[in-house]
Every structure is written in structure tokens, then in C-alpha cells.
């Protein structure tokens, strides 16, 4: 079970919408932590561990790519699965993120079925 999920996006609407999609996908009993950019996310990750990070790419101060790089580089954080959501089309960035170990890269608009597919390996079968 994904007990604690971090959603990283500078848009409050996107954070709320992502949370609703995750709840429909089977994460309705999870605790959610929100961060407004990569820097905020890293600070909150240092305070307490999470079971999944779902992050936007384009954000002020620290974007999703740098957040992933820092998570991967940290022995304490690099076991956390990361899903990246993007509104831009960038095959090179997608490849780079996947080569860094990102679980999935999803194009907006996200939906419960897309998240379900991305999280298949993390959710027990009965949850989706």
C-alpha cells in the first residue's frame, strides 16, 4: 500500500486534480503531502519519507527534472518511485527521465486509467 504520497506542482488546481485521480485509482486511504516545487519537495522529503512522488516538470525554482536527479543521487531517497507528469512533448527528456529510473512519464491531461497503468507495479491487484 502507498501510505504516503507526495504531489509536487506549482498549481494548486493540478495538485488537487492529481490527488483526486490517485484517490480514484485506489490511493483513497493514502496520506498526501504537497510541495510547490522541487526545492520544497526535497525539504519535505528530508523531514519524512514517502512511498511515491508524483511531480510536474515545469515549476519555478527547481523543476521536475532536477528534483528527479537529486532524488536519484540521494542514497536516502533513491528507492522512492517517481512518476512525472508533463504538458510539453519532449522525447529526449522522457528518455532521460526513464534512464534515471523514473517509474513513468505521463502526458497531461492525466486520468485515473493512466495513473492506474503507471502504478500497476506498486498497487496490490485488488486496489485497481
Amino acid at each position: 500500500m502507498l501510505r504516503k504520497i507526495m504531489i509536487v506542482d506549482d498549481s494548486a488546481t493540478a495538485r488537487m486534480f492529481t490527488r483526486r485521480c490517485l484517490e480514484i485509482t485506489g490511493c483513497n486511504e493514502s496520506e498526501f503531502v504537497e510541495a510547490v516545487n522541487g526545492r520544497d519537495a526535497l525539504e519535505k522529503l528530508r523531514e519524512s519519507a514517502v512511498d511515491l512522488v508524483v511531480s510536474d516538470v515545469t515549476m519555478p525554482e527547481m523543476d521536475g527534472r532536477e528534483l528527479v536527479m537529486r532524488i536519484v543521487a540521494s542514497p536516502k531517497l533513491n528507492s522512492i518511485p517517481v512518476v512525472v507528469i508533463t504538458s510539453a512533448g519532449n522525447p529526449a527528456l522522457e528518455e532521460e527521465l526513464k534512464s534515471m529510473g523514473v517509474l513513468a512519464v505521463i502526458a497531461k491531461p492525466i486520468s485515473p486509467p493512466l495513473l492506474e497503468e503507471a502504478l500497476k507495479s506498486l498497487l496490490p491487484e485488488e486496489e485497481y
Binding site: 515545469t58 508533463t86 504538458s87 510539453a88 512533448g89 519532449n90 522525447p91 529526449a92 527528456l93 502526458a107 497531461k108 491531461p109
Partner: peptide, 19 residues
Amino acid sequence: TIAGRFVAMISPDDVTFKL
């Protein structure tokens, strides 16, 4: 989101685009 979908639709699959 609409802008991303629209540009993706009118661009070749392997083209990088940025908003």
C-alpha cells in the same frame, strides 16, 4: 493542458516542444 495537447497533435511525434 489544452496547449500541450494541441501542439502535440500538430507536431511530429519525435519533435520536442516547450511551453
